[in-house]
Design a protein around this nucleic acid. Structure first.
Lengths: 152, 152
DNA sequence: CACAATCTAATTGTGCGCAATTATAATGAG
DNA sequence: CTCATTATAATTGCGCACAATTAGATTGTG
């Protein structure tokens, strides 16, 4: 006869902020997928392109710091973007440890197509721009506190 | 001479709610990792255990509906939990298509150890319980709207 | 200069996460 | 009852995500 454990509110799935973040992330991904299919990009690839559209010709490290991803994730991802003809990877002349990532003409041109994406997301989210901004700010503050807590 | 593209606020990484969710999810994962190492669980495995601690002896489908994951993700994950001795997978007698997942004594016992986890997260988040609950509710509402938007 | 310490990517191995397919079981219409 | 339809998991293949390691370049110190 297994004793029913005392319910612990903190251990309940639906009380956990982290699961809300986790599952909302997956939901976003599923909404993005059909929109990004037209660009032939996955969501992490789209993020890398967003970084490059803001600043071109940057080392892998900078992209990683911006996206909170390491080279183990970025190296193969960027190789796929290169294979798709969207970027060019060249080793820096000043510091040969660095691999510089630059957009090709095709990569720059893709930005025009990408402009349609955020609208689609906004519509699916059912939020106003203000609500989205508020949630974003809360989440960024949370993320920064969590990242700060790691090196304890 | 590459023309500098007009900055498009909606395409900027730091304006995107989705990236905030994505990066906050990764930050949570990094905070969870050392806490879950003591339980020898990954975060998705921990989620599956949370479901089972709430309701034992359920089909894979139910776990999937609860976590928004499919059998392609859950089957190997559950096999690893079985190999670790935390659960038992048995085919249902009433409906042989279903695989029923039940906790072992060891799996039930792990719940005691897991009770320490949420406190660690709460501390790292730097939020009050009320702030966490508010964000959670906003995110769950967003997630549900996103999921509802998929079948359009 | 020599040489240790540091920095940057790449590589390797494990575990998700999901689309597409397959296999088997249950259900329903005629 | 028969056969198509539906339901449930498992399997396969691809792309992240990250820890740990490796390789090579750079920097700092004596």
């Amino acid at each position: 006869m297994a004793k029913k454990p005392a319910p612990n509110p903190l251990l309940q799935l639906d009380n956990q902020l982290c699961f809300a973040v986790y599952s909302a992330g997956h939901a976003f991904n599923r909404v993005y997928k059909p929109l990004l299919e037209r660009l032939k990009l996955t969501y992490p690839q789209y993020l890398a392109m967003l970084v490059l559209w803001e600043q071109d010709n940057v080392p892998v490290k900078d992209i990683g710091e911006r996206l909170f991803l390491d080279s183990g994730t970025l190296t193969p991802l960027l190789k796929r973007l290169e294979a798709a003809g969207l970027i060019k990877r060249t080793r820096s002349v000043e510091d040969e440890r660095q691999m510089l990532i630059a957009l090709t003409a095709q990569g720059q041109a893709l930005r025009e197509k990408a402009k349609a994406v955020p609208q689609g997301i906004l519509a699916a989210s059912g939020c106003t721009v203000g609500e989205m901004a508020a949630m974003k700010n809360d989440l960024v503050a949370l993320r920064d506190r969590l990242n700060a807590a790691i090196g304890d």
